[in-house]
Design a protein around this nucleic acid. Structure first.
Lengths: 214, 214
DNA sequence: GGATTAATGTACGAACTAGTACGTTCACGG
DNA sequence: CCGTGAACGTACTAGTTCGTACATTAATCC
């Protein structure tokens, strides 16, 4: 019975096992934090065993770093698909902000991982090798829009792309990351679909009014 | 040798022991997170023993809740001291934003506790009894400023106090809570003293330009 | 000033958790 | 079709961590 080496369904599959572990680990770490996550729990939810986690990743910490790297890479990849060069600066920025808004809302696990990593003072991310490639995708688009806007005399000069990125991120990240204490204290769910458009538009206007002031 | 019951230095002091534990626990929880914090470590850093943690607080979780409650109470108390009724709406809002900015910067442990509590989906804060008193101090000032600004025809109508509070918090919280990954990725320290005034003024202008648009 | 209780210290245990030693099975090249 | 190594499973261990039983000392009340 010749081996069906033509992929599809093999009993032993390096890639699939690795991906399975990584997916389960992502949920577990995002859910419980690095310290709260349990290797045994991750193992139990995979279709393989704990032994394989150590076989493929080496240990809990390396697994966590692999999770972080995959999560960041996925987000940045989707950010790079943005094309707003054909729009005028104001609309371009509104588009970009709205897209980031959508991205964050669609990826709550990523936001949680970022929060968790910040609790750990980014000690794992700092050691990661993918670090170098993360800044550009996030800033490139903003930089070009800002340049065009300034050349047209529309935008103020005392703000750089990183500042703009920070405002966008603050707004989008806070809405997800802090929604639980916010909800507990103020009784408002920042993710309520009925308020979604309000916030999405608000961020764009906030940016534009600030950048075009005077 | 009659007892020096006139306070000052007693060997056994309910209040002092409790306060000591609470202070040490605040640092430990803010530093390591709820799961990462170690009861033994907290005990070791107090001038008393682990036994006392269980004697006064009952357990790790109750201690954590006590830490949360104290931290929130302290912050809200300082917020209530704000008095900007004598300023015109624009300056009043700028003042309020700047004060929040300063508060957050001065209390990094509080910000970390909030992040940590959000990772746990506010399950502890939700059960706390001080919850009811937290919303008002944070919103009262903004509500009054907004009202005055609207009556004067200065401010837009489609934004409420909670929205404004959210923008202020996003900005201030993000700057502290996410500074580590931000620094790792972009190489910029959002807490750099040289950029402090820039960000502090930026938040005020951001709000005012948005609220007074058109 | 003796009894009572509040406050404190010590030593220990039961449960959990990351990691590993060792054994097994499947795929694949020759 | 068989040897070899990659992929996988089981059972265990060493160390940690929350919590407590038990013993003790200081303050306070009558």
């Amino acid at each position: 019975m010749a081996a069906p080496s033509s992929e599809a369904e093999r009993q032993r599959d390096k890639e699939r096992t690795r991906a399975d572990i990584l997916a389960v680990a992502t949920r577990e770490f995002a859910d419980k934090g690095y310290t709260g996550a349990r290797v045994d729990e991750i193992a139990a939810r995979t279709s393989t065993t704990k032994r394989m986690i150590y076989y493929y990743f080496g240990g809990k910490e390396q697994l966590y770093i692999a999770v972080l790297e995959q999560a960041y890479s996925a987000i940045r990849a989707s950010e790079q698909q943005l094309d707003v060069e054909h729009l005028d600066p104001e609309d371009a920025l509104r588009q970009l902000a709205a897209l980031t808004f959508d991205h964050h809302e669609a990826n709550p696990d990523f936001i949680r991982l970022v929060s968790i990593e910040n609790i750990h003072r980014a000690e794992h991310l700092s050691r990661s090798e993918i670090l170098a490639g993360l800044a550009d995708p996030a800033l490139g688009g903003i930089t070009r829009i800002l340049e065009r806007g300034r050349k047209a005399g529309l935008f103020r000069e005392d703000v750089d792309a990183l500042d703009v990125h920070m405002v966008i991120s603050s707004f989008c990240v806070f809405r997800l990351a802090n929604r639980h204490t916010f909800q507990a204290i103020f009784g408002r769910d920042m993710l309520d679909p009925g308020r979604r458009e309000h916030y999405r538009a608000m961020l764009g206007t906030l940016l534009i009014e600030y950048l075009t002031a005077r």
